[in-house]
Design a protein around this nucleic acid. Structure first.
Length: 365
RNA sequence: CCAGCGGGAGCCGGACGGUUAGGCGUCAGUCUGUAAAACUGUGUAAAGUUGGUUCAACUCCAACCCGCUGGA
């Protein structure tokens, strides 16, 4: 079981880009997120099974969670630069066209669960459709009903495989329902009434305004909390989200942002303007000219391995010259920043000082 | 001294008698279950100088200036 709350960095292709498992450990990562669709394509779930599962393959002895491919129903479904949709949804499942070579693949709930059991993460996710935003109510309802049917099929397949392989994987059911209160509640009731090991909230952070996202989570949270099961918020993880959602009892959330931002030269911090101006969202760009001669740390108070040794001027130079070390140093820093903030929240929740902490960081409750 | 080639925004640079070249860089912005070390936006260059031809020249002509290469 995960400590509560936990931030989950994303390592789609069985690696948190640019970091070794040792480095993940060093900065306090307990678990990271891998992707079923990507690993199914390369190297193949059967290959990973042959290697003894994801843990042995990656040499990561912490926990892992895999996504079901449900998010790709969303992301591959979008027109990417007019490239056209790469998926087709039917009642039975989703036809994917590989983004690598265009080859056709068909995912059913059963297939997704089989792949995930082959990959062998500790936690797996039911096959769902991450509904695009905005969606008409009619479509949202249809997608939701289908996702519920898929949830039951995922659950049945999961139980079968847990028994067959002697696995003890945890399966998360996913709440959808787009931005309609009744649909969200309907979904929450349904998913929470089933025999899942954990509850996941999906279909958020898909382009909607943030206040809507908070509202949608608040609609379903009471149902999820009542189950006493772990609650994972899928695909959410800006700094303020940590406070907004962990504060309400969410167990874990995953997000690509800290690692992806790092590769674009953006680093998380809480110094200077960040303390007073929420518009900058705790982030800044290391490639700015003003950092060329800046020999200070990325963040005044940061204790991460990067900030222990390196200053902005050096990292600025690494990014300007596109040196690989730059990506690693900022990724270490950003992931640490999220883990550390989560740790502060953990302690504050325990000590009853959460509101004070949140006020300090966000300037609001 | 002669010959050839070249002279365009920070850099590179295609085309062309009249339309926004383009790339890189710069600067700004974006990213929330990773098709992402990505993406978007960002400059009214008056094109070596001076004339000429033309309705119209960066594009044609002349002279001059500068650079590179070769030759005497």
């Amino acid at each position: 079981m995960l400590s509560k709350p936990t931030f989950v960095p994303v390592g789609t292709q069985a690696t948190v880009k640019s970091l070794t498992p040792e480095e993940l450990k060093e900065i306090g990562v307990e678990i990271f997120f891998c992707n079923t669709y990507h690993l199914y394509l390369r190297p193949g779930d059967k290959a990973i099974r042959k290697f003894g599962g994801l843990h042995k393959f990656t040499r990561w002895d912490g926990q892992l969670i895999t996504d079901s491919g449900g998010f790709q129903v969303f992301s591959l479904g979008k027109d990417h630069n007019g490239a056209g949709s790469l998926i087709k949804i039917t009642e039975d499942g989703v036809e994917f066209r590989s983004h690598l070579d265009g080859s056709l693949h068909f995912f059913t709930p059963e297939k997704s669960i089989q792949i995930q059991h082959n990959l062998g993460a500790d936690n797996i996710i039911a096959f769902d459709e991450c509904t695009p935003y905005p969606a008409t109510k009619k479509y949202a309802q249809q997608a939701l009903d289908r996702t519920h049917r898929w949830a039951l099929r995922s659950l049945a397949e999961h139980k079968k495989l847990n028994k067959k392989f002697g696995h003890k994987l945890n399966l998360y059911g996913v709440i959808q329902g787009s931005y309609y209160k009744d649909l969200r509640q309907q979904s929450a009731k349904f998913i929470c009434s089933q025999d899942f090991d954990g509850i996941a909230i999906g279909g958020v952070s898909v382009g909607e305004p943030k206040d809507k996202m908070r509202k949608a989570v608040s609609w379903v949270l009471p149902y999820a909390l009542k189950t006493g099961k772990p609650i994972h918020l899928l695909g959410v993880g800006e700094v303020d989200d940590l406070f907004d959602f962990f504060g309400q009892g969410i167990t874990s959330m995953d997000c690509t942002l800290p690692t992806r931002m790092a590769r674009g030269g953006q680093f998380l911090h809480r110094t200077g303007d960040a303390k007073h101006d929420m518009r900058i969202k705790f982030k800044d760009q290391i490639m700015r000219q003003k950092y060329k001669f800046d020999q200070t740390k990325l963040d005044d108070d940061c204790q991460c391995p990067t900030c222990q040794k390196y200053d902005k001027a050096y990292i600025h130079h690494l990014f300007k010259t596109q040196e690989l070390l730059g990506y690693k140093l900022l990724t270490v820093h950003n992931v640490y920043f999220m883990i550390h903030a989560t740790q502060l929240i953990r302690d504050a929740l325990k000590n009853g000082t959460f509101e004070k902490l949140k006020m300090e960081w966000l300037g609001r409750l």
